[in-house]
Simulated assay, not measured.
Amino acid sequence: MPLVNAPVPAVEQATRRSGSRRRGMFLVHKRPDPSWRPLHPRARRMLGPAMFVGAGIATGLMLHTVDPREPGHYPTCPFLAVTGLYCPGCGAMRAIASLTDGDVPAALGYNPFAMVALVLLIGIFVEWAARQWTGRQKLTTARPWVIAVFAVLTALFWVARNLPGMTWLSPP
């Protein structure tokens, strides 16, 4: 009986070199390439962060002038309208409008989870803008556990704010 060789797989998994990716606590990114140089000058690299800041200022001005805390200015949350339950984002516009007035306790009362997320997003923005300013390589991706933890916390907040004893998490 002749010996038959096992079929060769159509796709072979590439062997992973040790240390080919840097492992940070929250992010995974490639090791910096010593020959890498930014393609664009600093002014062009900073265009994205500048547009982001401009959009944030425009949104803040809009929420400051057209107050979402007064009925009739903005539509009701569709999830709230259909189910009668609060979604994780319910109260976020009113919270940001309260921040534009300088009323942090009211902002936390409307949506505490959104305020914590806003602080984290500002931190991510600062990191991105600093990388753009210095011309360092962009980060590749967030670690899967970071995304999973954020998704679980969002789901827990969603459930908790709709429980009878947890009305302090619901917007007034």
Rank of each mutant, 00 (worst) to 15 (best):
L120Q: 07
A58E: 08
R42E: 02
L3R: 13
M51I: 14
V119K: 09
L99Y: 07
Y74S: 00
N5M: 14
L63I: 05
P75G: 01
V104E: 05
C90L: 02
L39E: 12
G60I: 08
E127T: 08
L121D: 11
A43S: 14
A155R: 09
H64D: 05
C87N: 03
L120Y: 06
F52A: 13
A142F: 12
G24M: 10
R69Q: 10
L139V: 12
R143S: 07
P172C: 04
V82S: 08
A107H: 00
F125P: 00
K30P: 11
M51A: 12
R94M: 09
A43V: 11
Q132G: 01
I96R: 06
V11C: 11
P32Q: 04
E12P: 11
R143W: 07
M166L: 15
A92P: 00
M115L: 14
L108M: 10
D103S: 04
L120N: 06
G123Y: 04
W145I: 08
V116M: 14
R42G: 00
I147S: 13
A10D: 13
G123R: 02
L27F: 15
L85W: 06
V11G: 08
L99K: 04
R136L: 10
P171A: 07
R136Q: 12
M25R: 15
L85H: 06
P34S: 04
S35M: 08
S35K: 09
G165I: 06
M93F: 00
R161F: 00
R37W: 01
I96C: 10
L153Q: 08
L80N: 06
P7G: 13
R17Y: 09
A142C: 10
V8Y: 11
M115T: 04
C87T: 01
F113S: 03
F157I: 06
P71V: 07
E12I: 15
V28D: 07
H73T: 09
A160E: 03
I124Q: 10
A107G: 01
R161V: 00
F79I: 07
C77D: 15
R161I: 00
L39R: 15
S170E: 01
V119N: 09
P34Q: 02
A160R: 02
T65D: 11
A95C: 07
R45S: 01
T141H: 15
M115A: 05
M25S: 15
L163D: 05
A106L: 06
P144A: 08
N5V: 14
D67M: 09
E70M: 09
V53S: 09
P34M: 00
M166W: 13
R37K: 11
N5Q: 14
T154A: 05
P171C: 08
T134K: 03
F150C: 15
